[in-house]
Simulated scan of single mutants.
Amino acid sequence: MDTEQQRFMNMKRRVYKIVLPVLTVSLGLSLFMSAHKGLLLTINLILLVGMLFAWLFLSTKLPLRVIEWFLLTLAGIYLLTMVVQGVYTQMLGHGETSLGDFIVWMPMISLLMFLLFDRWPALIANLALFTVLVLPAVPAFPRLNPEQNESLILFYSGIVVYTSLAYFLHQLYRTRAEQNAMLRFAYVDALTGIANRHRIDTWLRKKVELGEETGKLFSLIFFDLDNFKDINDIYGHKTGDDVLRQLSKVVGEELDHGDLFGRWGGEEFVVLTDTGEEESFRLAERLRKALEDHDFGIAGRVTASFGLSVNRPGDTAESVVSRADERMYHAKQAGRNRVTGRTMVSGDG
């Protein structure tokens, strides 16, 4: 869970690194082409400089939450100041019919709420912002002409629309993310992070079907840790789990692109590779040696026994697995820490 959360925060940081420069350039161009002066110019410059600093902070170790709260506070102050300025100076003072072009930034603040908070807290925060922006304008409504009142109503209606849109988009994104997570974990072994048996079965069926249709060879390498029960009994299941995780990493680093690797169950693992017996035997031997040479820490020396089979005409997924499992059993019987194929046997016992 912590890893997923950290990944999400890193993704948000990358998004901010792209979005903030775009917003800063857009605001800078708006200031350059407009006739802002006095308070309006000061507020816009503060916002521009604030976004620039926030972008610079993204490259530091400053927590992302701090940067987000800084942006949220900056945006809130900006909007409140601009509403008061727009209503009492632009509309009542100068007779302007609208608040000003600052309203184009309103969607950004609504989206930022939903990036910073979860769905319901973000909705509440947007409603609080709506209230804060409405209250200063309430006393001015009776003094504004119909066209100005219509502009204000459109502005506040826009806030409601942006908030509703962001709320439902967040809900859709969350639903899709949960569906993707469920689909991913349906095929991933929770302990090791590699493919689980369900995914291996899917791979194996496809390879058998392809082999029957085209005659393409593939090999299944089936291996099992030697004396794994002793590791659990002596050092505990936590150490046993750590051994399985380390094994997955060691084996994964030895595989070539296109090789498929997963946990069959318990301490049993499977590798599928698009090669014949000779090449798959060399791969299995390389895996055996890598495990034998790896330092598993408190568990000490850990080895595995391997059996491999190559698909034949008329094979099923079950028959391919059965031959590899039988040969792995022979490797165990012959002294463990060895590889057994149809015609090839190796290992130091």
Rank of each mutant, 00 (worst) to 15 (best):
D2H: 15
M9P: 11
N10A: 14
N10C: 10
K17L: 15
I18Y: 13
V19E: 05
V25P: 11
A35V: 12
A35T: 12
L41A: 09
T42F: 08
I43S: 06
W55D: 05
L58Q: 07
K61N: 14
K61F: 13
L62T: 14
P63C: 08
V66M: 07
I67L: 04
E68I: 06
T73D: 06
L74C: 00
L79Y: 15
M82F: 11
V84A: 12
Q85D: 15
Q85N: 15
G86E: 02
V87S: 02
V87R: 07
M91G: 03
G93L: 04
G100M: 05
M108A: 08
I109T: 11
S110A: 15
S110G: 12
F114T: 00
W120H: 13
V132I: 13
L133R: 01
L135R: 01
P136G: 03
L144C: 00
S151A: 10
L154S: 04
Y156W: 02
I159S: 10
V161F: 09
Y167F: 12
H170P: 10
Q171M: 12
T175G: 07
R176G: 04
R176E: 10
L191Q: 08
I200N: 10
D201N: 11
W203D: 12
L204F: 04
L204W: 08
G211M: 03
G211E: 01
G211S: 10
D230N: 14
D233N: 07
K238Y: 14
R245L: 13
K249W: 12
G258D: 01
F269V: 02
V270M: 09
E278H: 06
E279K: 11
S280Y: 06
F281Y: 08
E285C: 12
E285T: 11
K289Y: 08
L291C: 10
F296G: 04
G300N: 04
G307S: 01
V310I: 00
A331I: 00
R338S: 00
V339K: 01
M344F: 03
